[in-house]
Design a binder for these strands. Structure first.
Lengths: 138, 138
DNA sequence: TCCTACATCGGACTTTGTCTAAGTCAAGAA
DNA sequence: TTCTTGACTTAGACAAAGTCCGATGTAGGA
């Protein structure tokens, strides 16, 4: 992920302590934090960091295509650093846990032209819902 | 949709003017209103209806499986009365318009067991994203 | 008609996110 | 190294969407 910082600098980003910390929090796969969780974790390393900066930085990373925004429940959006590998999501309806999954097939080609209503279709998200093992056992 | 009211009464629902109006607003297919839009339309017929009641009623209809909750953008949830026919959604990234679509194939069977991580998978939503004809022309 | 459990009301509150004005600082220039 | 400047950050006000609560109203059975 450290080359993420280099890539961003190459695009004219100013490399500040705040941005570095946000990027570090998102480092690692299979992590789907809300903006608040990112802020909490960033604050551990940089206590003065403000919410506005976290929101700004996340928004910029999304525009740059470095992370994905995922809104699975109409509550807080989650941020997915695994933006460079095609995948979809499996969400626990009880606790909200998210796993990355890789279904077979290509849903984009499953949408016939007559079902596109003149839209220019650019992407597709598949969200599986269910109950995770810990929530099932309860 | 009038038999919806009968069905609900059969389940012990008290039939109030407010609930009747909310159900009537959602009548008709291919409608995806936000809670606020439902409230605005319900208010035209029943000016005293409160937001809390609209939220309560929508929540109950969702629990009863009579309508679907759709959150495509992390902003206001939308409510889809077309709950009894399998379908997915095509969303315009610019104006938020939603169309019901019916892709080929069954995404549920596309998720291999090893990709289920012990979850009990109960459903799947496919959201196509793109630009609708009016927004493309601009 | 009367009763009462269930529904509704309005408004306060919470959560999530955006905006702004003032202050700060990264990085190139000298 | 120090200076300069415009991009970045901050705290807090604000906004949108949704939830909660005590008081009041009413649908539907007795």
């Amino acid at each position: 992920m450290s080359d993420l910082l280099e890539r961003l600098r190459g695009r004219g980003w100013r490399l500040t302590a705040q941005r570095r910390v946000v990027a570090e929090v998102l480092d690692g796969d299979h992590v789907h934090y809300t903006a608040d969780e990112v802020h909490a974790r960033a604050s551990e390393r940089l206590p003065e960091i403000s919410r506005a900066t976290v929101y700004n930085t996340l928004g910029e990373l999304v525009s740059l295509g470095e992370i994905l925004e995922v809104s699975t429940d109409g509550r807080a959006k989650r941020y997915d650093p695994n933006a460079h590998h095609d995948h979809h999501h499996l969400v626990c309806s009880r606790c909200g846990t998210i796993r990355d999954v890789h279904p077979a097939g290509n849903p984009l080609s499953d949408l016939p032209v007559v079902e596109r209503f003149g839209f220019t279709v650019t992407g597709v998200e598949v969200t599986y819902r269910g109950t995770c093992p810990s929530c099932t056992d309860v």
